[in-house]
Design a protein around this nucleic acid. Structure first.
Lengths: 144, 144
DNA sequence: CTCATTGCAAATGGTTTGCATTGGG
DNA sequence: CCCAATGCAAACCATTTGCAATGAG
């Protein structure tokens, strides 16, 4: 599960390549994302960076999304969550108890997509797979 | 692609079984969903039923979601869309040009899930797969 | 200096809720 | 009759935007 991951420097370089300035607030947001492996909500980013304005945080998240180095995913209850990309293309596991996000890659899925293509009217341009789990710690812990 | 689909009567029965009353507005919402095969936004439901209050529409959609006979899915741009369930478990195709939703089922995916289980720390409780496509009509039409 | 970036606060879009009214059984 | 369901408008929550102030190169 633990794997190649984009470093803080990679992220900053990516932004620079897209003609963005590297500013304090942007460094802060990236540093925080880097620290939160398990995924964060926009609200958590705001809470973690009280000195940075909400608008700036959302704007930075959007920049990273557009650059393709951040993933936005939707929990079963509809809440959005952000997590740094680790592979070019990958999928997510989401714990339905604690909301922790993990990611994995499986080439079978990519092959499957090609096979499914034959049954689908139109051209496949992408896909999104989310696997809902109860994670190990939650399985072990008591309650519900 | 065209397949067994829940009828208006099935939906009404489902609600009844859950102790809900069958009222005019609820019939209206269900009838409209029945007519819109390709998926609708809540806004479109409201527009299609100007005599029914927004709140009632959202309340009815939620009832159907809870009953498991309606699917809420998120377009790539984040916009939510509703479509009637046709199989117990199935997946969606979403056209990235026109937003039309289709659905399909593939047993390979279910088998794949079991295989993936071995690599994932925790217990798989569900999954969601969305296939983004450019649909036939959009492929044929000009522009973009 | 200049233009991108920021912060604030107000606007937005989608959805939910409080509450008095209505209507099905 | 009674309680579930409705409609309205206000409340909500996450996100976006207008705009003047700021700051990096």
């Amino acid at each position: 599960m633990t794997t190649t991951r984009l470093s803080e420097t990679d992220l900053l370089t990516t932004l620079e390549d897209r003609g963005c300035r590297i500013t304090g607030p942007r460094r802060d947001v990236i540093a925080l994302l880097e620290r939160k492996e398990a995924g964060v909500s926009a609200e958590e980013v705001c809470a973690g960076l009280p000195l940075v304005g909400r608008a700036t945080i959302y704007r930075t998240l959007k920049l990273l999304l557009e650059a393709g180095v951040l993933c936005k995913l939707t929990l079963p209850d509809g809440a959005p969550k952000y997590t740094l990309a680790r592979f070019d293309h990958h999928h997510h596991t989401v714990c339905v108890r604690c909301g922790t996000v993990g990611d994995f890659r499986d080439s079978t899925i990519e092959r499957l997509m090609r096979a499914i293509g034959a049954d689908i009217p139109g051209k496949i341009v992408g896909h999104r797979l989310e696997v809902f789990i109860t994670c190990q710690p939650c399985l072990a812990s008591p309650q519900s």
